[in-house]
Amino acid sequence: MNRQVIITCAVTGAGDSVGKHPAIPVTPAQIAAAAVEAAQAGAAVAHIHVRDPETGRASRDPALYREVVERIRASGTDVIINLTAGMGGDLYIGPDHAPTRFGTDTDLVGTEERAVHVAELLPEICTLDCGSLNFGDGSLVYVSTPDMLRAQAALIQRLGVKPELEVFDTGHLWFAKQMLKEGLLDQPPLFQFCLGIPWGAPAEPRIMMAMRDMLPDGALWAGFGIGRMQMPMVAQAVLLGGNVRVGLEDNLYLDRGVFASNGSLVERACGIVERLGARVVDPAEARGILGLGSLDAAGRPA
């Protein structure tokens, strides 16, 4: 069991949740405010995507990331910023008679372009999605090949940003361990088990335990489940020795029929952690656990 728990809040995500919830953060101001709200509720880490302020659709625009990060830092709120670097991997396969006639929603770019905002803003953490995946029903494939991953891991390592290794299935974890052997990841590696996304690993206790058992010695890890499995996986992760993630990226409801906020989800997770006899750590303590450096006067990694 983990007695000192880091809570990450994924505040908006890239999914089509706008319109399914009355208050999904969309604009940079809303996303930054959501990160501050989560931190005030007890989250040590805010995981950030950005959206087009006009349409609400997922975006890779570095200017939007810059505004979000600047607003968080200007708020004076201490929270570890974790920027996604997973955007730019969406490939919509064409119809059966013309599979290379890719869908209009395809957004597939190389590794450097996926990390432009990371290189500019130098967050303390960024994500590295550790493999390709059939993402839900239909014809969407998230593409992250071994060659792409090696190149992106090397880039993140050169930037001095800590990668959060997002693994959606056991093969992703297997390859992340290979990158560790090849020296593309620094010690201690940080893993995030992403469970319940069709058609990756399901959000089941035995799956989380199996992935935990596959970890290399000394690894740090967290895990989450989506939808109604979010809070059960909070408890499961703590009991198995890990950290946790909640937030509107992964789940829209606090209770059946009751819309959540990022703050209410963090508060619910804090309650579960504390009732299990563990303690939620603050950002300064989380930096020590994760092996992150200190911040300068502007709130940037020193």
Rank of each mutant, 00 (worst) to 15 (best):
H172D: 13
D213L: 14
I7L: 03
A235T: 09
S144G: 05
G293K: 14
A23H: 15
K177V: 03
S75R: 14
M87Q: 03
P95C: 14
I24Y: 08
D129L: 09
C130E: 08
H97E: 15
P198I: 02
T27P: 01
L276P: 02
P53M: 15
M229C: 11
L159N: 01
V109T: 11
L252Y: 09
E112I: 13
R206I: 09
M148K: 03
S132C: 07
F135A: 08
Q30H: 10
I156Q: 09
D107V: 11
Q236C: 14
Q236V: 07
D169A: 05
A10R: 10
V69Q: 11
K20Y: 07
D16V: 02
G227Y: 13
P53Q: 13
G263Q: 07
G299P: 06
M179C: 07
L180K: 11
G200Q: 12
A23C: 05
A58H: 12
C270M: 12
I80G: 06
P62F: 02
G103S: 09
M148L: 07
L108A: 03
Q178Y: 06
T8F: 05
P163G: 04
Q152A: 04
Q187E: 14
M231E: 04
T55M: 09
D90I: 01
P25S: 12
Q236G: 00
I272W: 01
E274Y: 00
E120L: 15
V11F: 07
V36L: 10
A98T: 11
N251W: 11
V36N: 11
A46D: 08
G171S: 06
A210G: 15
N134D: 15
Y142Q: 04
R245L: 12
G160E: 06
T127A: 04
L121C: 12
Q178S: 07
F259D: 01
G86W: 01
K181P: 03
P25T: 14
P216V: 13
L190I: 04
E204G: 01
P202N: 03
R275P: 00
D255Q: 10
R51P: 00
Q178P: 00
L292H: 13
S17T: 14
V5R: 13
L252D: 06
R212M: 00
L149D: 04
G136E: 00
M179I: 06
I289E: 05
I272D: 01
A151S: 12
T100V: 10
A43Q: 07
T27Q: 08
L173K: 07
R158Q: 09
D186T: 03
P99N: 06
N2F: 06
W199F: 15
R279S: 12
M148R: 01
G138E: 07
H47C: 03
A302L: 15
A115P: 01
P95H: 10
L121A: 10
A38R: 14
S264A: 15
A119S: 12
V36W: 13
R256N: 08
A58R: 13
A115V: 09
V18D: 02
P198N: 14
G263V: 05
V50H: 06
D129F: 04
